[in-house]
Simulated scan of single mutants.
Amino acid sequence: MKRFFPVYVRVPVLFFTCYGILEYFIDSGDKPMIIAYPSVLALLGLILLVIIALEIVAKASNNVIEQLMTPEERAQKEALDNLPFSELPFIKKLMKKLTKSRAIEEEKEIEMDHDYDGIKELDNDLPPWWVYLFYVTIIFGVIYLGKYHLFGGDNQIQELEKDLAMAQKEIEEYKKTAPDLLTADQVVLLTDPADLAAGKAIFDSNCVACHRADGGGGIGPNLTDEYWILGGDVKEIFTTIMEGGRDGKGMVAWKQQIKPSDIQKVASYILSLQGTNPADAKAPEGDKVAAASAASQTSGNVANDTLANTNNQAPSAP
């Protein structure tokens, strides 16, 4: 058998079989098992060494046995090793059990009296493999009948509908928490200094050309007063940044350049600028929105001290 499965086939097959078994029983999440659990890598290395050691011992043992053989035994072993796969003793024995075939010399024993133009019929038994398979289909049929017709098991269409409903539910749950699938109705005012600092960095990279680094306004409106053209709530500011300003004029839409989760940080940072009153700020535009000022106090008070030093730094180029 070893000539049909040489060592360079046996070793990888055994190794990856062990790996597959470990991968199946060990839950490593999204990471590969050998990365999530480095100890498993050491175990696989040990398994590989054991397999190689067993192959070396088996090879050495065979060499010793061959040296102890008589010339006749060695010739008999060589003849056995050179047999085709189908002629190997255990293969022939297995096929005989599965087919119950008779040798040509024994066909006389099972000849029937029927003779059609010299063609005779043999009284062969059904091949065991066919009989076993027939029994399996009967058992399968009984189980199928019981599950789907007696006990109300789901058919394929019902299983599909349930799977689709479950998948849709999982998608909706994922959308509730996925940071880059934020919609305006999910946006909340962020007050964490790290989020506001991240929003400031994005603002400095993309917004200062029109609104100035201090938010006092240039080409674009002043972002530090209580007057807003398109609404001063954090959700409205988020929508304005995402979709852009008024048609034909105003700010462009940033949804293709900035992720929704980052736009939320920028909107929160903008509200933290409320009441900072920078020098030479642009005149108010739009309508006064008192709620924006009140809502921004939470973030403005927390963030002003944290961002005081960074607000005075030179803005980066847009």
Rank of each mutant, 00 (worst) to 15 (best):
I237N: 01
F238S: 01
F238M: 03
F238Y: 10
F238E: 00
T240M: 08
T240Y: 09
I241F: 07
M242H: 14
M242I: 07
E243M: 12
E243C: 03
E243T: 10
E243R: 11
R246F: 11
D247R: 05
K249P: 09
K249A: 15
K249I: 15
G250P: 00
M251C: 10
M251T: 00
V252A: 12
A253N: 06
A253M: 05
A253F: 01
K255D: 10
K255I: 02
K255R: 07
Q256P: 05
Q256N: 15
Q257A: 14
I258R: 00
I258Q: 02
I258D: 02
I258H: 00
K259A: 13
K259V: 09
P260S: 04
S261N: 04
D262H: 03
I263G: 07
I263T: 08
I263E: 05
I263K: 01
Q264P: 03
K265Q: 03
V266F: 03
V266P: 00
V266K: 01
V266D: 01
A267Y: 02
A267E: 00
S268P: 03
S268F: 09
S268D: 02
Y269C: 04
I270M: 11
L271H: 03
L273H: 00
L273P: 04
Q274N: 11
Q274M: 12
Q274P: 03
T276C: 05
T276V: 09
N277I: 07
N277L: 04
N277E: 14
N277F: 05
N277P: 06
P278V: 06
P278G: 08
P278M: 06
P278N: 11
A279E: 13
A279W: 01
D280F: 10
D280P: 05
D280G: 12
A281N: 06
A281P: 04
K282E: 08
K282P: 08
A283C: 02
A283W: 00
A283Y: 05
A283M: 08
P284S: 08
E285I: 03
E285Q: 15
E285S: 11
E285H: 04
G286C: 08
G286E: 06
G286R: 06
K288R: 13
K288D: 06
K288F: 10
A290Q: 10
A290R: 08
A290F: 11
A291D: 12
A291C: 10
A291Y: 12
A292Y: 07
S293T: 11
S293W: 12
A294Q: 13
A295M: 05
S296Y: 00
S296P: 00
S296Q: 02
Q297S: 12
Q297A: 14
T298V: 13
T298L: 07
T298I: 07
S299T: 14
G300A: 15
G300V: 08
N301G: 06
V302Y: 03
V302W: 06
A303E: 04
A303F: 15
N304I: 09
N304H: 11
N304C: 04
N304K: 12
N304W: 07
N304S: 14
D305R: 01
D305M: 09
T306V: 15
T306H: 14
L307G: 02
